[in-house]
């Protein structure tokens, strides 16, 4: 019998790359549907996914964040963002579309290492 594994999806892509955001959510949901713990980390340009939704929608883009708001119903455990990635892009943690746990760059490797499977979405 297979034991449960803890997954983390590391989102490094901006929301300007076609259907990738939707496909990322599909993959997240597939893992959650099998009752495995799932976390999400926004890193580098991936933090743009957390930008206020109306900015993205005005540009005809489909943001990830409104979809992520629904993920608590699928037992997505934690949404985190790297503090330095936000700061380098002049994004304030207060202006994001959903609450995130802020991780310092120095904390990220250990945090990822606490998972069994890390899936890069670059």
């Amino acid at each position: 019998m297979n034991h449960s594994k803890c997954f983390v999806f590391v989102v490094r892509q901006p929301p300007f790359r076609g259907d990738r955001t939707v496909e990322l959510v599909d993959q997240l949901l597939a893992v959650a549907a099998f009752d495995h713990p799932v976390d999400v980390l926004f890193l580098d340009d991936g933090v743009w996914q957390l930008q206020a939704a109306h900015v993205l929608e005005g540009a005809g883009l489909r943001p990830l964040a409104p979809l992520l708001r629904t993920l608590e119903f699928y037992d997505v455990r934690e949404v985190a963002a790297e503090h330095e990635s936000l700061a380098e892009r002049a994004l304030s943690p207060d202006g994001l579309v959903l609450p995130v746990r802020l991780l310092a760059r120095s904390e990220v490797p250990a945090w990822i290492a606490g998972h069994d499977v890390a899936v890069g979405c670059g």
Partner: peptide, 12 residues
């Protein structure tokens, strides 16, 4: 195939 096969394989 589908994502279910990917999840299943990840567990093994």
């Amino acid at each position: 195939g589908g994502l279910g096969q990917w999840v299943d394989a990840c567990l093994k």
